[in-house]
């Protein structure tokens, strides 16, 4: 039989994490699927579902602080998230369907670390900071150095993800979220992208960030394409260069959902689509 520790206080959770080898469960929408598809349950489980302090959303200066247990439904309905991180709302709306949105958490999506996790390109593009806690205190890790490989993270055994610090989207900034899934709902991404840019009246790109999922072993930033575009003026030629650059920069594979070729072409098309509107 498994032991489940259901905790209501962060400190309790930290204590258990420091003393025992436990698997954390939040909304369970990833974990329960693993277990029902044949993986055996870990002996000891830490249930954090009742850690209500991880459900807060707060403004902190230029940042929005979002607790790791926030569900997608919560994100979709929160006025501050709608205003300061519309892309995160767009992403949340595409996740599963309402039953999953009611239960799945942002923290679960991050720690689960699937390259197809739909919130992740947004977090990558926004350079969010992760807040990680343990008995030793709280540390901040830039999201873009959180993953070390396919489903590998820097999170230590005794640590819990507390939440994210997301820089508020600026007034002049435009962001877009594109998900290309297998169907209109309950779909896993074949390509998922978050774009963020500030483009001035002369069509000069003052700033751009591109986060991509499902096209590499982890969520990635398209740094080469960003370098190409930063400071450049949007022209037909530039768009074509960006299309080529981005589709070369990613490292997608053939799998049961799609093909490498399709992923490259579509990724290229989508940056063109994003840039065309300016």
């Amino acid at each position: 039989m498994n032991t489940v520790y259901s905790v209501k206080e962060l400190n309790e959770a930290y204590k258990i994490l420091s003393q025992e080898s436990v698997k954390v469960i939040a909304g369970g929408t990833d974990l329960m699927v693993f277990y029902s598809s044949g993986l055996s349950l870990p002996k000891k489980i830490l249930d954090i579902w009742q850690l209500n302090e991880l459900r807060n959303i707060n403004e902190e200066g230029d940042y929005l602080k979002i607790g790791s247990l926030c569900t997608y439904t919560q994100l979709i309905n929160d006025e501050r998230v709608k205003h300061f991180a519309p892309c995160l709302v767009s992403a949340s709306k595409t996740i599963g369907a309402v039953q999953i949105q009611n239960r799945g958490t942002l923290g679960g999506n991050i720690v689960n670390g699937s390259p197809a996790g739909d919130s992740l390109p947004v977090l990558a593009a926004f350079d969010v900071k992760l807040e990680i806690g343990s008995l030793n205190g709280i540390r901040q890790v830039p999201f873009n150095s959180f993953y070390t490989g396919y489903r590998q993270t820097v999170l230590a055994e005794n640590e819990l993800l507390l939440g994210i610090l997301l820089p508020k989207q600026k007034d002049r900034e435009k962001s877009e979220f594109y998900k290309v899934g297998t169907r209109a709902a309950q779909a896993i991404s074949k390509v998922v992208i978050a774009f963020r840019a500030i483009v001035n009246a002369e069509k000069k790109i003052e700033f751009i960030a591109i986060g991509l999922g499902s096209v590499a072993p982890t969520v990635i930033r398209a740094t080469k394409t960003e370098t190409l575009l930063n400071g450049a003026e949007i022209t037909f030629d530039l768009i074509e260069q960006a299309r080529v650059q981005l589709s070369q920069e990613i490292v997608p594979i053939d799998d049961i959902r799609s093909t490498e070729h399709y992923r490259r072409v579509v990724t290229g098309n989508l940056i063109a689509k994003f840039l065309r509107v300016f």
């Binding site: 259901s6 329960m32 249930d47 039953q99 309950q186």
Partner: peptide, 25 residues
């Protein structure tokens, strides 16, 4: 595995897939 919704129930007023929720929660 949370895909079909046949197991949908309300837990504290919100609709979820009961096949994905361990009873301890």
């Amino acid at each position: 595995e949370g895909e079909c919704g046949a197991c949908s129930v309300f837990i504290d007023g919100s609709v979820v897939n009961s096949c994905l929720v361990p009873v301890c929660q």
